[in-house]
Amino acid sequence: MKPYIPPQIPRLALAFAIFISLFILLRNFLVPDTFGQYGHYRGASLIDNAQNEIHYAGQKACFECHQDIQDLKAQDVHSDIHCETCHGPGQKHVISGEAGDIIKPSGRAFCGNCHEVNAAKQKTVVFQVDLNKHNVGKNCIECHNPHQPWEMKK
């Protein structure tokens, strides 16, 4: 005996089937290709993020040309400080080689960024001076060579 199926059931089932297939069809076009490649995100986004342009070249690139500064720097307390800490982003300069593409900082305020006395700085980490007392009116680099701060200029 054939079981009785109310007529609305197959009709509803059909309607559902159509909606679900439409959903899957639309989803197929709306979801990006690499979505779900590694997780719940667009896999190609990893490549997008990795392709951002670099502005800081890294110390190694600097020393390819400036071997003399590397040797100079190695002898004194600034040896662990990378070039771009003071000279700013150097990728442009690495490519062009132009002196105008790199910063040559000077001035008391610049050195003071690290060396001005502040209660929050540990004395063992950085040598601190009170900019209001230490040779006021003079530029730091008149006496100190920034690459070799304790070899005083005469």
């Binding site: 502005h55 800081y56 890294g58 662990d80 400080i81 990378h82 771009e84 800490t85 690290c114 980490v125």
Partner: peptide, 12 residues
């Protein structure tokens, strides 16, 4: 390359 903040940190 190291992240930019770590590249320039003078005290490590």
């Amino acid at each position: 390359l190291a992240p930019a903040c770590m590249e320039v940190c003078p005290t490590g």
